[in-house]
Amino acid sequence: MFTDDIERTHELTELESIMMSRFANRFYLNREVDPAIVKGILNSARYAATGANVQPWRVHVTAGNAKERLINAISAAHEASPGDHSSEYRYLPETLPEPFASRLREFGTVFFGSLGIGREDVAARAANTARNCRFFDAPVALIFTIDRRLEKGSWLDLGMFIQNVMLAAKARGLDTCTQEFLSRYHAVIRANLPLGPEELVVCTMAMGYGDPDWAKRRPQMPKLPVEGFASFHGF
């Protein structure tokens, strides 16, 4: 098969190994991250591709007391009235078509199964969701925003910037987890951080030193082989 040919003939570069080892880590050690490391990650990430050099990204980085105040505010809002909060954009359509719906269900089975949480255990699932509000106890929390006046093309650029952040962090021994979930609490975030009125909260990110025990036990999410998503013409 085509994938087998790749594995036989293609020796992974260091960058590719980092790309393939990265995953959304939701368990972190109680270990501070040197702010110089975070600045170094962002310094590298700013070289992300961006159409016409627009550079549409903004990121608010929090740690220490600033992060704790944000966590407390978001957690209080989530506990009191989660239904009153919603994102300023739609991440997925209301009805997810196939094959994407099946992949989403598979994710839930694999992820919650790895935590020992059953499909019908509503309380345990809710408790796990609430961990988002604490940024999974990671020492650094980042909030990514984009100017709401921009169009979809700039959102592509923002995604490439965020991917650069994740890869640069992994290269420095840090793990990350992006969180679309917390975009629904944009008003709470805005009340606790100096966001401009034009800034739309796209997602947040937990960053820190991942728990090595969890890294050994965490499941590998299934990915399609190359022939499952790519077609080649003229080769």
Rank of each mutant, 00 (worst) to 15 (best):
M1W: 04
F2G: 02
D4F: 08
D5P: 01
D5N: 11
D5S: 11
E7N: 06
E14F: 03
E14P: 08
E16V: 03
I18Q: 01
R22V: 03
R22D: 00
A24P: 03
R26L: 01
N30E: 15
E32K: 10
V33N: 02
D34N: 14
I37E: 04
I37A: 04
G40R: 00
N43A: 12
N43E: 13
R46E: 09
T50N: 13
N53Y: 03
N53W: 01
N53K: 10
V54E: 11
Q55M: 07
Q55V: 09
P56A: 07
P56T: 07
W57L: 02
H60A: 06
H60C: 13
V61G: 01
T62A: 13
G64H: 09
G64C: 07
N65V: 08
K67M: 09
I74N: 10
I74D: 11
A76R: 12
H78P: 01
S81V: 07
S81N: 15
G83R: 06
L92H: 12
P93E: 12
E94P: 06
L96V: 15
E98I: 07
E98G: 10
E98S: 13
P99R: 09
R103V: 07
L104A: 15
L104Q: 15
L104H: 15
R105W: 06
G108S: 11
T109Y: 11
V110Q: 11
F111W: 13
G113E: 12
S114Q: 11
L115D: 12
G116S: 09
G116F: 00
I117E: 07
R119L: 11
R119T: 12
V122R: 13
V122I: 13
R125T: 12
A126H: 14
N128L: 05
R131V: 03
R131N: 09
C133T: 15
F136I: 07
D137W: 08
A141C: 10
L142T: 05
L142A: 09
F144I: 04
T145M: 08
D147I: 08
D147M: 10
D147K: 07
R148G: 08
E151A: 05
G153N: 05
G159T: 08
M160F: 10
M160S: 06
M160I: 09
Q163D: 10
M166Q: 14
A169F: 01
R172K: 12
L174T: 02
T176C: 15
F181D: 11
L182D: 11
S183F: 02
S183V: 09
R184N: 14
R184H: 13
Y185W: 07
I189D: 06
R190I: 11
A191R: 08
A191I: 07
A191M: 06
A191E: 14
N192A: 12
G196N: 10
P197F: 08
T204P: 04
M205H: 07
A206E: 03
M207A: 10
D211N: 05
P212L: 00
D213V: 04
W214Q: 00
W214D: 00
R218G: 00
M221W: 03
L224F: 08
G228W: 01
S231E: 14
S231D: 12
F232S: 07
H233E: 13
F235E: 08
